[in-house]
Design a protein around this nucleic acid. Structure first.
Length: 202
DNA sequence: AAAGAGTCCAACCGCGACCAG
DNA sequence: CCTGGTCGCGGTTGGACTCTT
């Protein structure tokens, strides 16, 4: 593997929460040099942080136009739909939610939505088994429906390595799909409408 | 009021991808 | 093509905060 050893192993590199002063310095340096060459930025800032850490701080906190605070219902809905479509590809999902970071969405998913989904699944499987009784295979359970969507995605990409089920890093690019339609940042309403449509296709 | 449990979120870690020399 | 350096991603952790008993 390409030298991970260089990444963040500088033993003296400071870890832990960022101070306001560090934020300020980092922001200044990035303003001058731009948000790239993180190792250089880290060095120039003289913060004794590794580049990776600087990048993360910038991406998740210092970047302009970052929306903080509650995720709206509309955004939540969008996350759910995008997750259904893309799996755990948080950066891709975040890319469709202006002002939101992948970390934020990932956290939100892990703390809110995954629970919601589980509850929903439980509920619907209870309903199903209550309603169904005899012929189990005609109707798709919601989970299976999700699987189908994943499969649809997979069909479009070459098989890759291990099939660990959860679509981490699958090469079907939701981006490709989105890029067909847009070049700029996404308009939430438009996106929701598109996803409504997308539901219709299934 | 205090303790324990649960939740949230910033930050870290490990890995694969990409790119330049 | 190969190698080393760097970036970006998703998973995980740990501490601060909030809620419940």
């Amino acid at each position: 593997m390409a030298s991970r050893s260089n990444q963040c192993t500088k033993k003296e590199a400071y870890r832990g929460p960022w101070t306001a002063e560090e934020d300020q310095i980092l922001a200044q340096i990035i303003e001058i040099h731009g948000p790239k060459r993180w190792k250089t930025i880290a060095a120039k800032a003289g913060l004794n942080r590794c580049g990776k850490s600087c990048r993360l701080r910038w991406m998740n906190y210092l970047r302009p136009n970052i929306k903080r605070g509650n995720i709206s219902d509309q955004e939540e809905d969008l996350i759910l739909r995008l997750h259904k479509l893309l799996g755990n590809r948080w950066s891709l999902i975040a890319g469709r939610l202006p002002g939101r970071t992948d970390n934020e969405i990932k956290n939100y998913w892990n703390s809110h939505l995954s629970k919601k989904m589980k509850q929903k699944e439980k509920q619907s499987s209870r309903l199903l088994s209550a309603a169904q009784g005899s012929s189990p295979d005609k109707t798709l359970k919601p989970i299976e429906l999700n699987k189908n969507e994943e499969e649809r995605g997979k069909e479009e990409m070459p098989p890759k390595g291990d099939e660990d089920g959860e679509s981490t890093r699958n090469k079907f690019s939701g981006d490709d799909l989105f890029n067909c339609f847009t070049e700029g940042p996404f308009n939430l309403e438009w996106m929701s409408k598109f996803l409504e449509l997308e539901d219709g296709w299934i």
